[in-house]
């Protein structure tokens, strides 16, 4: 059995156990959130190496070079010596520039980081409520278009971090954030390729960034954005998006109402139903899916079956954080 050395003590790691599970089981407090390799809350360092490749999947090359890995995705095959990153290395301060309601449940938070962040629209940052608790929020801002970061935070009933953002955070406050991460962003190079973007709720945030990024970079192929909500009040930034359809004829904005009667200007049904009604064959399309985890996993599957290559499907399910006690063994 591999042994994990942490702060001078060696811990026995069970077969198939991750570094996160092992250290947590020994009573050591390691920050974590999604526990499925997405959010990078559980980053640790192995200065001596020996980490399996899967534990570094999706990390920036600079992080990989420094021996960072995701503790929740690391099932060691050999002895490892690990450490928590020093807080200063990964976090930076940011000032809250403004907080503005977008719809009854979602606010836009604008942040000015202490040093410029090298990021792509659609990636996510982590926002810290305190030293331990952080959550991922996707970037709706485009670095070439805006000099502040913008995130859209939906109030989750009883949610630790989203309630704090909605009820306590104020313009002028200083917060800690962690550097941008994630693979859900626009890459230039194929300006004619059709783009399909499906999002529900605050899943519009990354897509709002990606769409504007793509159009700003001169994307000429079709760009179809479907935004889903169960209530008419849930649609936001609709005026801005409609204005974009006027200036960019290749851009199409389709708000989809998933429940109840459908007023004029809205499509009836889920984003996935609407997209598949408009187009049956997505071969050679590039696809972005963000928001509700069920929509994202169903959407990945259905759009893949409709012809999209798996390598062209980019997705960020907004997975809730899992408390260690509730995590599956």
């Amino acid at each position: 059995m591999p042994r994990i050395t942490y702060e001078g003590t060696a811990y026995e790691c069970g077969a198939g156990e991750t570094v996160l599970d092992c250290l947590t089981a020994w009573g050591i407090d390691i920050p974590s959130s999604c526990r499925s390799g997405v959010c990078q809350s559980c980053l640790m360092r192995a200065p001596g190496g020996g980490v399996p490749q899967a534990a570094q999947a999706g990390l920036k090359p600079t992080l990989v070079a420094q021996g960072y890995f995701k503790a929740c995705s690391c099932t060691p095959t050999e002895d490892l010596s690990v450490a928590l990153p020093d807080a200063a290395g990964l976090r930076l301060a940011a000032e809250v520039v403004s907080i503005e309601p977008l719809n009854p449940d979602i606010v836009a938070v604008r942040l000015r980081p202490a040093r410029p962040l090298d990021y792509r629209a659609g990636q996510f940052i982590r926002l810290f409520r305190d030293a331990q608790q952080s959550r991922c929020y996707s970037l709706a801002s485009v670095p070439q278009l805006e000099d502040v970061l913008e995130i859209h935070v939906r109030q989750v009933p009883g949610g630790q971090v989203s309630s704090w953002v909605h009820q306590e955070l104020r313009a002028g406050d200083s917060v800690q954030i962690a550097d941008s991460a994630g693979q859900c962003f626009y890459v230039p190079g194929q300006p004619e390729q059709p783009l399909l973007l499906l999002g529900t709720g605050s899943g519009l945030a990354p897509l709002y960034g990606i769409v504007r990024d793509a159009l700003h970079q001169g994307h000429r192929g079709p760009v179809w954005l479907y935004h889903g909500s169960p209530t008419p009040a849930g649609f936001y930034r609709a005026a801005e998006l409609r204005a974009l359809t006027q200036t960019h004829p290749n851009f199409r904005y389709v708000p989809c109402l998933s429940e109840g009667d459908t007023p004029a200007g809205l499509r009836r049904g889920t984003v996935l139903e609407a997209a598949l009604a408009d187009q049956t064959d997505f071969t050679s399309w590039r696809v972005f899916l963000c928001g509700h985890p069920d929509m994202v996993s169903q959407g990945k599957l259905q759009i893949f079956l409709a012809g999209a290559a798996s390598a062209e499907i980019h997705a960020d399910p907004f997975l809730p954080s899992v408390s260690p006690a509730a995590a599956p063994a």
Binding site: S297, K300, L301
Partner: peptide, 20 residues
């Protein structure tokens, strides 16, 4: 993978698991 998921004889064995 697309063939298997469309094949009604066997696709039930491949559901449930995350696509990636």
């Amino acid at each position: 993978y697309r063939k298997v998921l469309k094949d009604a004889r066997i696709n039930r064995f491949f559901g449930g698991v995350d696509m990636d």
